[in-house]
């Protein structure tokens, strides 16, 4: 039986294995070593939640603590990527995107296009996403749709330790800039992960559950809530198909459409704010390309259009739940002519 490790350990292992294989891979970010030059740096934190712990000692000179200047070190990483290195930079919280957006939006994402395909930018930006840690409005956002909107970027959001390792190795080997979104509430999640090196391809959704009645499309942490809802609904005789997108750019349109053609019903679950989100994007895709198959309205289960609240009670209300997903499924199952 395959060994079980956490999502966090899986990310750490992917980094270590790729750094061992390829000397051009290096890590840069705030506190990724744990205070360079400070006493005891070898056993230092390894990032704010310890994801890169231990790498500084194994790869001297290749885990670089950066000053608190996203514009500086993200820019440095983009530059390094254009010059033959494979940087993995860490944007501690995705909420800090504003401090380095030009480097990503106008530089990294544009080079391949503007240099006629002659330039490659093999950059990975790892970043923590998602709510639930009582970290308030500036450290809890789910900005996957922001990145997905930008042509030239690839956007990854793994839901399991297995996917986290395979997708990160794929991201490091990819020649385009990849935004790698790690959900902070998944870091301790345990799962089977091969010790060997493997890659999970981009743009290939994972069918986590086969069903004939309704399709649930989601990604990231919401996958687990969708699976919980699907298990409850199965006991009520409703057979859900659950798709984990794994990557929002590229997105596996074929699998979404194939599933909805079969079930005729769709609920999209997205932890992000609802306007211009994955939820609206997928709903539009299905409404346009699989309209004839639909037997009921498309439902979206998302956060509301507000910042993430700091209050525990309000944050719990803000994040989608399995119960909300079940309610949405029941709404769709009632069909067009109901109500």
């Amino acid at each position: 039986m395959a060994r079980k490790i956490s999502y966090q350990q899986a990310i750490n292992e992917a980094l270590a294995q790729e750094m061992r294989r390829d000397p051009t891979v290096f890590i840069i970010g705030e506190d990724v070593a744990g205070g360079a030059g400070a006493p005891g740096e070898n056993d230092a934190w390894g990032g704010v939640l310890g994801v890169t712990k231990g790498l500084y000692g194994q790869f001297p000179g290749r885990v670089l603590d950066a000053p608190l200047s996203e514009i500086g070190y993200v820019g440095a990483a983009v530059g390094a990527a254009t010059q033959g290195l494979r940087p993995v930079c860490e944007l501690m919280f995705v909420d800090f995107a504003g401090c380095c957006l030009d480097q990503i939006l106008n530089q990294a994402a544009k080079f391949r296009y503007m240099y006629g395909g002659k330039a490659v930018t093999p950059l990975v930006m790892r970043t923590m996403v998602g709510a639930g840690l009582r970290a308030a409005a500036q450290h809890s956002q789910m900005l996957t749709s922001l990145w997905t909107h930008i042509p030239g970027l690839k956007v990854v959001c793994p839901s399991s330790p297995y996917d986290a390792k395979g997708l990160l190795i794929q991201a490091i080997r990819d020649n385009d800039p990849v935004i790698f979104c790690e959900h902070k509430l998944l870091y301790s999640l345990q799962g089977e992960v091969p010790e060997e090196v493997y890659t999970v391809p981009f743009g290939e959704a994972n069918f986590l559950r086969d069903g004939d009645d309704i399709t649930l499309v989601t990604y990231g942490r919401m996958v687990h809530l969708a699976m919980e809802a699907a298990a409850n609904l199965a006991r009520q005789g409703i057979d859900c198909e659950v798709l984990d997108l794994r990557t929002t750019s590229p997105m596996d349109e074929d699998s979404i459409l194939e599933s909805v053609e079969k079930t005729g019903r769709l609920v999209v679950i997205d932890e992000a704010n609802p306007r211009c989100s994955m939820a609206t994007d997928i709903s539009a895709l299905v409404a346009q390309k699989a309209f004839g198959a639909l037997k009921g309205s498309i439902e979206m289960v998302t956060a509301p259009h507000t910042p993430v609240p700091f209050s525990d009670a309000l944050e719990d209300l803000y994040i989608p739940t399995a119960a909300k997903i079940e309610a949405a499924v029941h709404t769709v199952m009632k069909g067009r002519n109901a109500a």
Binding site: G166, P194, E196, V197, Y198, V200, R209, D210
Partner: peptide, 16 residues
Amino acid sequence: TRQMLEDMLRFKRLEG
């Protein structure tokens, strides 16, 4: 089964 296919894909993704 879905799981049998997934296990085969996981095997096939391993390097080498």
